[in-house]
């Protein structure tokens, strides 16, 4: 029995692949069929591993790029309280990125490689963050709609078949609901304010509504990875189901705010109790995904710049740690 065969902790990555397993239903298949969780050292198909690395990394990238649109308002928040709240929220987004990079690393891809895939454009982040935030109301709309849509997407991921991803999502979902509420409260304050503030809130809703409902991804009929991910328990619901749930939850909230959702075809279907909505402009979605959104270039330049400008800090802390370790070693030898 090789207790030392795995010197690595549960987090240092893969030790076996599907091909290592004897014939018959594999351990992996049995665990998936029983709706049990897969853990980092379990054997798993290469494609399952690759799908997860891609999905978790893109999720992580979205969290850290997502700091930018709201970060732009940190120095201009209308009160000290709003500023403290927004700082906490943006800090949470950084934290969510770190939880997720940590989960992705358990699959054997090191952190710096994941970041490099983002910086070189080999991996994407959610297109929603390629839209600008021209007014304070956009900060409200992001919290209410973008974080609201994210929660709808993320809650089912708390039951994802891959343990570390599911655990990261539990932590993230707990924190997201503060994000959505603070955004809704900004919208509520503006909606009850002066005619100009009201107008500002409506204009932000007009800007963010369609991009927000596109966050659930293309219709299931056109989604590329959907079926396999469902079978593996990575994804629990289709894009269209989640989009519908979000719309049904959000329309009454807009009514409460006294704001109008910019969709003339939106109406309650009395027979089903759900809302019918108008045609989504998927050409715009794909245009932004491909890099032609209003802020794609700016977001990437800011991210890469932040990484490069932090280089000397990383080098300095590493040098300091090495010096301290050498001193401790010397002291130890001097004492013996």
């Amino acid at each position: 029995m090789g207790s030392s065969a795995i010197t690595a902790s549960a987090n240092t990555g893969p030790t076996a692949t599907q091909s290592d397993v004897e014939s018959g239903p594999s351990l992996f298949d049995r665990l998936i069929d029983a709706d049990e969780r897969i853990e980092p050292t379990d054997p798993m198909p290469d494609e399952y591993r690759a799908t997860l690395v891609r999905q978790i990394a893109q999720h992580a990238h979205s969290e850290i790029i997502g700091m930018q649109p709201e970060g732009a308002w940190l120095t201009r928040a209308p009160s000290l309280r709003r500023k403290a709240i927004l700082t906490a929220k943006v800090q949470d987004e950084a934290g969510h990125g770190l939880y997720l990079y940590g989960a992705a690393e358990t699959l054997g891809t090191p952190r710096h490689e994941l970041l490099e895939r983002l910086h070189t454009g080999r991996q994407k982040y959610s297109s929603i963050f390629n839209y600008p935030t021209p007014t304070w109301a956009d900060v409200g709309a992001i919290g209410w709609l973008v974080d609201g849509a994210a929660i709808m997407n993320q809650v089912p991921l708390c039951r994802c078949s891959y343990g570390p991803y599911a655990r990261a999502m539990v932590r993230i979902c707990k924190e997201e609901s503060f994000h959505q509420r603070q955004g809704f409260q900004i919208m509520l304050t503006l909606a009850q304010g002066t005619p100009e503030q009201r107008e500002m809130a409506q204009a932000a809703l007009d800007r963010w509504w369609w991009p927000a409902i596109m966050m659930f991804g293309p219709p299931d009929s056109e989604s590329t990875h959907g079926d396999q991910s469902m079978r593996w328990g990575i994804k629990r619901f289709g894009n269209d189901v989640l989009r519908q749930k979000f719309i049904d939850a959000t329309v009454p909230q807009a009514d409460l705010l006294g704001l109008t959702i910019p969709d003339p075809d939106l109406r309650l279907d009395e027979s089903t109790g759900t809302y019918r909505y108008g045609e989504i402009d998927w050409t715009e979605f794909w245009k932004v995904v491909r890099g032609d959104g209003p802020c794609n270039a700016e977001r990437m330049a800011t991210r890469v710049g932040a990484h490069e400008n932090g280089q000397w800090v990383r080098e300095a802390t590493a040098a300091y740690a090495a010096k301290q370790a050498a001193r401790a070693e010397a002291a130890l030898q001097g004492a013996s």
């Binding site: 029995m1 795995i6 690595a8 987090n11 240092t12 076996a16 379990d42 054997p43």
Partner: peptide, 11 residues
């Protein structure tokens, strides 16, 4: 993390 010794799932 490198100081953690974990049991082998095969065992």
């Amino acid at each position: 993390s490198s100081d953690v010794t974990a049991s082998d799932p095969a065992d």
